[in-house]
Amino acid sequence: MKKTTYLLMAVISALFVLSWILKAGSLSGETDNYVIQGFLITFSAFLTLSVLSFLYADNPLYKFAEHLFVGVSAAFWMCMGFWTTIVQNLIPRLSDGLSSFFEVPPQPGDYNFFFFIPVILGILLLMRLSPKGGWISRWPLAFIIGTTAGLNFVRYLRSDFIKQISNTFVPLLGTEWQGIGHFFSNLDLSASGQLVTMAANWVIFLGVFCGLIYFYFSKEHKGAFGAASKVGIWVLMLTFGASFGYTVMGRISLLVGRITFLFRDWLEIIS
């Protein structure tokens, strides 16, 4: 490593310690373990800044944060999975002895030998680790994929497909159609006017129509069909642009949250 790198590391460590001392000092009135609290807050600020440094370029600070994050989070999920799924959902149903060991209440009547199925499948999955039994690990995979396919088949047919069809049934002339004469005498372009509401219904109907044509795979997109598909892709582009613009506000809020943490909880320069 170069001399400047060492120098930089020394400066960062010094700043860290300085912040720790100051933070602990400002917390000393409020809590008993202010030394630890001061360290923790300084450390999370350090991690926050390390991730932000990625915006400049990849660097050792980011690498440190990234590698720590990977290790800690992998263990986090494994512990959560162990305690919530195995201990709370599986053990009370299978073994009284183990449930008393983990002090989980065995639910009367919950004992269910069907729950040996996933255990066996789980063990079969681990057969991957043995060089010869690997092929048997496909059975649990087949079970998972079969479950997925079965559940999704009906779920999507039901909630998305059939419901979306009926949602498209909008009256194109609006619900308060009072004849053509009335329509023309009340023609205006105000945002809540009849014409504008009606136009939205037309756009929805034709937009869905053309959008679906764009997703037509087994026919060449030529002639009138091609034109409709072209309109379809325009509608999709409008959708994407609009959703993009609409999401920006939420993303900015996230950054507001992080900067507030730095300014308020760490530096205490705003209240």
Partner: peptide, 17 residues
């Protein structure tokens, strides 16, 4: 890698660069 959304992203982003 890991099973936490942004930890995974952090690692993949690092790999990319």
């Amino acid at each position: 890698v890991t099973q936490l959304q942004f930890a995974y992203v952090a690692a993949v982003n690092g790999t990319m660069l």
